[in-house]
Design a protein around this nucleic acid. Structure first.
Ligand SMILES: NC(=O)c1ccc[n+]([C@@H]2O[C@H](COP(=O)([O-])OP(=O)(O)OC[C@H]3O[C@@H](n4cnc5c(N)ncnc54)[C@H](O)[C@@H]3O)[C@@H](O)[C@H]2O)c1
Ligand SMILES: NC(=O)c1ccc[n+]([C@@H]2O[C@H](COP(=O)([O-])OP(=O)(O)OC[C@H]3O[C@@H](n4cnc5c(N)ncnc54)[C@H](O)[C@@H]3O)[C@@H](O)[C@H]2O)c1
Lengths: 220, 220
DNA sequence: AAGAGTTTGTGAACGCGAGAACAAACTGAG
DNA sequence: CTCAGTTTGTTCTCGCGTTCACAAACTCTT
């Protein structure tokens, strides 16, 4: 069905399109043009069309796209038609927020376990799940067929947790700890670095202030 | 001092280099080669050198980089030598975690206010700050000279919160709500979409399972 | 049925970023 | 001082992603 590999940049935008399509459906809009969908997703319409063309020809010329049909096709392409068990390791401030986040489960991601090394937290109920010892990782992965792991521990523990995850058979990791993880070739790591995001904003903000009114900060 | 514009891809990596340099300094390493720093940052050494060359010539051929000096130069370039007041709007699960996160304040980002529309939360103490009414936004921005705002409200409220921020004079926004924000030209928005990250992992995971052993799912 | 009006899918041009490869510049030994 | 060794800064090439522009394909009116 999808013989060609989809460009990475396109893959990263598919979830955005999916969100836009869901929003349209909630407004009872059954059909949309690439222009409308692109606006809703915040991208160029040409880019959107090219992205979608990588999945196949799901639109109709002169008409547009059937919202529900396109949503299904994108979901299938990403793999959201199946259910993905997820484990979260490190149930501190961030881990709590993630465990309570409904946006994950609503998209086919099912948190099957919350793990923490701190014994004093074991048994504590978070979002309907008990916090369990980190040592149970391998058993849980095996039992539920977990493929995706989330790391929300301090940076110092991240690599070690990562190694255990890989050892247990997890092949996709979402890392919130500000730490570069080294993993085997076949394992995917995506890093979410909130501090970096703020720093990038700060860089541009500084540029706006300095480069704006006067070029040099020192007057004659 | 920095006449040429720095490529966006480079800007996005500077915070990573900064982290790596901090880690080296903690290990009392005063000097490093591009190779060492690149390994610590998880990038190619040629890329690192090219990135740094955009800031200036801060290394010494045959020797390498002075860790502390380079760290200062990158900090200055990003704008971390000054202090950035930040407001967080929407103190729910995620807002709490962000407010409690020490990684922000340690890098020159100072949370000056936590705002929420829910009156029943006002006055509640989070990370040493009282939750205040959202209506005080403009006054707080004016008083503290806030340039950076963080949105951690539900998606339905995000655009409205964003508009208020822009109206109050905020020009850089970090958005955690899964919602495309429309802003004037001069305002920067960075989106952190955790759900998208998981979906991207799922896509690759699906590929690994299907495309791995056999090319077609159906044997002869 | 034909033609005007729409909208998709794609070919082609362009620009940016990644990586290899090398010259310039520094250190240190003899 | 000279020369070998090291490491940076930069040039060059290549590939990817973005955008424009247009032909192909569809609808609807007359
Ligand atoms: N809180 C935020 O908003 C925020 C924002 C950006 C990044 N982060 C990063 O996310 C990570 C977690 O942040 P946090 O604020 O939740 O920290 P936290 O200290 O509140 O929670 C960390 C949790 O990890 C557990 N832990 C420690 N070592 C472990 C190990 N080896 N195995 C399993 N569990 C272990 C601890 O017991 C604790 O419960 C940190 O790396 C932080 O830098 C957090
Ligand atoms: N919790 C997570 O881990 C997580 C992960 C990814 C994304 N998100 C996104 O982050 C946002 C917040 O998530 P959450 O789990 O903290 O939700 P939450 O419901 O716990 O918190 C939202 C807060 O925003 C406040 N609020 C609502 N409307 C407001 C308005 N107009 N002005 C000011 N404040 C307002 C609410 O009173 C509430 O306190 C959501 O958009 C969610 O999709 C959360």
């Amino acid at each position: 069905m999808s013989p060609t590999r989809i460009p990475e940049a396109t893959v990263a935008r598919l979830p955005v399109y999916l969100r836009a399509l869901n929003a349209l459906l909630e407004g009872d809009i059954r059909t949309c043009s690439s222009e409308e969908l692109a606006t809703a997703a915040g991208v160029n319409s040409a880019k959107l069309r090219k992205d979608l063309s990588h999945l196949g020809s799901y639109g109709t010329r002169g008409v547009g796209y059937d919202v529900e049909y396109l949503r299904y096709q994108i979901s299938r392409e990403i793999g959201l038609t199946q259910d993905w068990p997820v484990v979260i390791v490190g149930i501190g401030n961030l881990g709590h927020a993630l465990a309570n986040y409904s946006g994950f489960s609503s998209r086919g991601f099912r948190t099957v376990a919350l793990l923490d090394a701190d014994t004093s937290r074991h048994g504590e109920l978070v979002a309907g799940l008990q916090i369990r010892p980190f040592t149970e990782l391998a058993a849980i992965v095996r039992e539920h067929g977990v493929a995706i792991g989330v790391i929300a521990t301090p940076a110092a523990a991240a690599q070690s947790v990562c190694d255990s995850m890989v050892g247990a058979g997890i092949r996709s990791i979402l890392n919130f700890a500000p730490s570069v993880l080294s993993v085997p070739e076949e394992v995917d790591v995506r890093m979410v670095d909130l501090s970096s995001e703020l720093q990038i904003l700060a860089y541009h903000e500084q540029r706006k202030s300095n480069g704006g009114p006067d070029l040099e900060g020192v007057p004659a």
